[in-house]
Computed example of a mutant assay.
Amino acid sequence: MSSNKRQYKCKNNPNKFCYVCGEYIFVTPPNFTSTLQSAYRLYFYISPENLGESWTPNVLCNTCKTGLTMWMTGAKRYLSFDVPTIWRQPMCHEVDCYFCLTKIKQHGRHKTVEYAHVNSMSKPVPHSLSVKYPVCPKKNIVNRQNQVIMPNEKSELLASRLQERNLLKSQVKVTFYRSRQKYYAQYYIKKNNVCYCNDIYGLFKEFGEPYDPTEWRLFIDSN
């Protein structure tokens, strides 16, 4: 995100408006972090543009932040629009600046907002029933993994990468049953509740070690 200073001062601070929905933010706004930018890109299939410009907000409202964050975790949480706010550089502050022409009125402890209609800013397009909600990338990856025969080790690695990107809930645990003992179990036998090795030579061969029957000691496991 660019840290360029704004070249002019609008009547209303641009960073009091949400980059996604364009609405005025009454509380301290959260920053449009790289994680939220990735969620924005995946949700709307477009990249956030002109961040850091003097005529573009660099923050989100809590509603949009929560919606994108919950959607990325796989929850059935969606925004109320299919197309976000599109920001363009205004031609003139007096007739084409969204931040200058939007009126914020103070009524005692409360504020009301009268939003401007300008060419430099396209407002969000409300969700249409004819348009399907976007599918969370986590669900896409998991569904694909279910359709493809994938070794357990790679499945575990995939899940680990999902956790690194905060695409899995914190309480999710990833495990699979390991059967490394199957190569050695054939050299053991259980009889009358006693388990013992009945093929010491084969076991040593499995270990890749030479077997010398003169070198041995009695070992009893009392567990």
Results as ranks from 00 to 15, higher is better:
residue 1 M to T: 14
residue 2 S to C: 13
residue 5 K to D: 11
residue 10 C to S: 06
residue 10 C to F: 03
residue 13 N to D: 15
residue 13 N to R: 07
residue 14 P to H: 01
residue 17 F to M: 03
residue 21 C to D: 02
residue 22 G to C: 06
residue 33 T to F: 06
residue 33 T to H: 08
residue 33 T to C: 13
residue 34 S to R: 14
residue 36 L to S: 08
residue 39 A to L: 12
residue 39 A to D: 08
residue 45 Y to F: 14
residue 47 S to Q: 12
residue 50 N to L: 06
residue 52 G to L: 04
residue 58 N to T: 02
residue 60 L to I: 04
residue 65 K to W: 07
residue 71 W to P: 02
residue 72 M to C: 07
residue 77 R to L: 11
residue 81 F to T: 00
residue 84 P to M: 09
residue 86 I to M: 07
residue 87 W to L: 03
residue 89 Q to G: 02
residue 92 C to E: 14
residue 95 V to W: 13
residue 96 D to V: 00
residue 99 F to Y: 05
residue 103 K to S: 09
residue 105 K to L: 09
residue 106 Q to G: 05
residue 107 H to K: 14
residue 111 K to P: 03
residue 113 V to H: 06
residue 115 Y to A: 02
residue 117 H to Q: 15
residue 119 N to V: 05
residue 119 N to A: 13
residue 131 V to Y: 05
residue 132 K to G: 11
residue 133 Y to H: 13
residue 134 P to L: 08
residue 135 V to Y: 13
residue 137 P to M: 09
residue 138 K to S: 14
residue 141 I to R: 05
residue 144 R to I: 10
residue 148 V to W: 10
residue 150 M to W: 02
residue 151 P to F: 03
residue 155 S to K: 12
residue 157 L to D: 12
residue 159 A to P: 01
residue 162 L to S: 03
residue 164 E to M: 15
residue 164 E to F: 12
residue 165 R to T: 07
residue 168 L to F: 10
residue 169 K to D: 09
residue 170 S to C: 15
residue 171 Q to H: 10
residue 171 Q to A: 11
residue 172 V to N: 08
residue 175 T to F: 15
residue 184 Y to E: 08
residue 188 Y to R: 09
residue 188 Y to G: 01
residue 189 I to A: 12
residue 190 K to G: 07
residue 190 K to P: 02
residue 191 K to G: 02
residue 191 K to A: 07
residue 192 N to L: 02
residue 193 N to Y: 10
residue 196 Y to P: 02
residue 197 C to E: 00
residue 201 Y to F: 06
residue 202 G to P: 03
residue 203 L to G: 01
residue 204 F to Q: 00
residue 206 E to W: 08
residue 206 E to I: 08
residue 206 E to R: 14
residue 209 E to T: 12
residue 213 P to T: 06
residue 213 P to V: 01
residue 217 R to E: 12
residue 221 D to E: 13
residue 222 S to N: 04
